[in-house]
Amino acid sequence: MTGADPFLPAAHAPDVYALGGAVLVGLGVWGLLALRHLLRRVVAFNVIGSGIFLFFGAIAARGGGEPDPVPQALIITGIVVALSASALAVTLVAALAQRRGGAVLPGEGRQPPEAETDAK
């Protein structure tokens, strides 16, 4: 079904995805600092990582021709490690929530009490 055929990115692709990655990193930094719910902060952290990977992947695709495999290998490593870091982070958040009854850091206020169905 698939062979090792060349899979060249389009000429404009690196610029487009690099700018997209830069925007995502900025959004993620804003989210990490501004959001207070810890699980949303973990999501923001992941958005930052993913934006950096897109930026790095665009660097790999620069210059036409075959993409550089070294950044791609590092990105694969990064994706897997980001998952493991997220797993550790969300387990910490859940443990904190069970201990304190809220998923916010101690210095940043209290979580409002839960309504009976607040599913959003």
């Binding site: 079904m1 698939t2 062979g3 055929d5 060349p6 899979f7």
Partner: peptide
Amino acid sequence: AQGWAALD
């Protein structure tokens, strides 16, 4: 259009 590896 781009490469059959996308099917994977």
